[in-house]
Amino acid sequence: MIEAINLTKKYGRRTVLRGLSFTAEKGRITCLIGINGAGKSTLLKAIMGLTPVSGGDIRIDGSPIGKGLYEHVAFVPDTLTLPPSMTVAGSLRFMGDFYRSWNPKRAAELLDFFRLNPSDRISSLSKGNAAKLNLLLGLSLDTDYLLMDEPFSGIDLFSREQIASVFTSDLIEERGVLLTTHEVGEIEHLIDKAVLLDRGEVRREFWCEEVRQNEGKSVIDVMREVYQS
């Protein structure tokens, strides 16, 4: 389980996380939902130890973050962060050299599934294909947790559908997935848990099926209540 406990983060005089707490369980898909500036990306970066927090704790399976974190938790940032002149095949080799948890067999399967051309250069990839490669690199690490920042943002419908199908497959089985989105729309029925963020605070954290069963409400219904009240 990933636990954020009372997290606070300030950039200078601006507070971006205000005593924020939530959990993301293994074997579940948790979605951080909030408009731009709600603190979603900062939160993911904090969990990855990429930005220092001003207060609070982050625990992964009970332990504070530290060495070895990157072999347990994979992070898919919102843009592909590889040299533009690298080829797709080269990026896979690069990951293999860098991470012990790299799974070349799975990478090859995903290359096929996403129909990516190994000889293409990163600089020549369409937005949709860049997003798919980005996701492929994260999914091919045998980690317990997978964090994704806005995996559906700014790409075409068919690429979105293909990426969404990852969430229905054994690629994420047994893993904990934590993703962010500012627009839950088409993935609403795919996620297990929703965490609604607003200005650095958790406004509501809930299991989607429970809310449907007990309150007859969709995730969007709950968002309307929370954000428009």
């Binding site: 074997g27 229905t168 497959s169 054994d170 994420i172 089985e173 029925h189 795919l190 996620i191 297990d192």
Partner: peptide, 17 residues
């Protein structure tokens, strides 16, 4: 369960449930 999740485009946990 796994086949059903892929087929219906649902979360594998939902298929299980």
């Amino acid at each position: 369960r796994r086949e059903l999740a892929a087929l219906m485009n649902i979360n594998p946990n939902t298929a299980q449930k």
